[in-house]
Write a protein that binds this DNA or RNA. Sequence first.
RNA 1: GCGCCCAUAGCUCAAUUGGAUAGAGCGUUUGACUACGAAUCAAAAGGUUAGAGGUUCAACUCCUCUUGGGCGCGCCA
Length: 547
Amino acid sequence: MLKFNIEEKLKSAVNSFAKSKGIEEEVSFTVEIPPKNINADLASNAAMLIAKKLKVNPRVIAQELIEALQKKFSSEIKTIEIAGAGFINFHFTDAFLYGELSKILEKKENYAKQETSKNEKIMVEFVSANPTGPLHIGHGRGAAIGDSLGRILKHLGYTVVKEYYLNDVGNQMNVLGESTKTRYRQLKGENIPFLEDGYKGDYIKDIARTLINEGKSFDKIDFREESHTRILEGIKNDLNKFAVTFDNWFSESSIAVKKDNAGFTEVDKVCCSLKEKGFAYEQDGALWLNSVKYGDDKDRVLKRSDGRYTYLASDIAYHKNKYERQFTKVINLWGADHHGYVARINAAIQMLGQPAEALKVILYQLVSLVRNGVPVAMSTRSGEFVTLKEVLDEVGTDACRFFFLLRAPDSQLEFDLELAKKQSSENPVFYVQYVNARCHSIFKEYKDNGGKPADFNLLTSKEERDLIKKLALFEDTLLICAKTMSPHHLTTYLTETADIYHRFYEKCRVLGVEPELTKARVELLKAVSTVIIKGLNLLGVSAPEKM
RNA sequence: GCGCCCAUAGCUCAAUUGGAUAGAGCGUUUGACUACGAAUCAAAAGGUUAGAGGUUCAACUCCUCUUGGGCGCGCCA
């Protein structure tokens, strides 16, 4: 992991030092930003780890290491010192920090783009909610995480495709059609019972009502198709409102229904091939996947004894298709309730000849919805759920996305509807957006009357230095997000940056001081604004100039 | 019963993946608008990181057990 673009260089220097001491294996030391109370820009535990291997006093090793590093990094690092049990603390030269600032100003919204790893092609598959009902609040969390992760990876220079897998075949679609049909007849006055396993949500009634209003005759209506199309349209509208975009919509029917010239679907073919390779076998009239072989608890059915394929069979064919499209890394975002499914899909992709690392399933814990402290059940079938749209209408896209991206996917998220409404003016998203608004009102007032370029050497206060350092960490933050597959580090980073900015703003006047200082500070603000706008953009949050 | 995830300030959550005195927001208390936006800032209070052991120079982080919660265990999707 890079730290101020310098960590890698430091690491190799330390490793060659270790080698000169007779240590052959890599020393896995860290270079980190020290806690706030430590007066240093970077810190490393390298000496402690080397000393341990050599069984000598860490502070002695630290002293030798410092001498070796000092010469090598004189342009970036001003001083190095020993602290505590043997930590090595680094202080940057001003020139190094101003260089980072110039880089942001020069590259603007392309700042932090990476040149490496261009040949890696990543797919992020997320949401993929069944088109049997509107998106609810849980889907929203997956949507926010997947979309932002995709944006971040794209910004880092990877080729990224964000995809939605549409489960548009299977029994559920028939149930959906029947549900609408029954509602239609009921609305027409027929006294018939509703289906026991039907979809009970009001949206079904709405569709039925619309169909009645459109006046088509009953026999001519394809209830299944009409329901599917309308619900999908609603899903697309909600995602659009939520600033979530997809590069591709992949339909299950293209692998499970569509046949080739010989009359086989992709699902047929992949099952057949698994069987040939010995990964699947017949038993009790069904076809089983030998997923135990790759660590699953038990084998899984691919094809039922009645001849119908299971969902898993489709999913394997789908993943085969993904790799045929040359993705080197496939990321799936699933709700935590699907975790039992991870082992079998992992097994399956290995049977397809992929290394285990080619698939990464990110499980996000479900959103537990609370209204005035009372838990609200969320089931598409019970019809008793809160839709994403409802929440968006209440709290807005920016607040909703920021809120979802504030926490790690692993943490369970409690979403109190009443609280979310109240947060309209206290939500941390405004705290970050306010930074950009403040910058822009200064830009509006400022008049650049030419002259010499800005002199960053005038930016000497602690507040300015802290701000520059934080800006220079933007790139690291994105890399951490990519490494941990979670955008929430960026959300935290932006909040911290906003905090440092607001403190700077309080202490340092920009307008009305010496013209040269004003000029330098305006440039600093341009860099702040660039990073804040880009950061918010990667989260899918707007950065208005006026609020 | 078996498996996965989680437990951190009154509440909601962080902690750069093993580092130095565990941090934010909300809430509470006290102060700051006659210069760039007070959607802000300054300060205070709040912790045995669920509990007990273990590994380590160093544990919120890794291992074991206990307790408490969420979820999953179908020829459903």
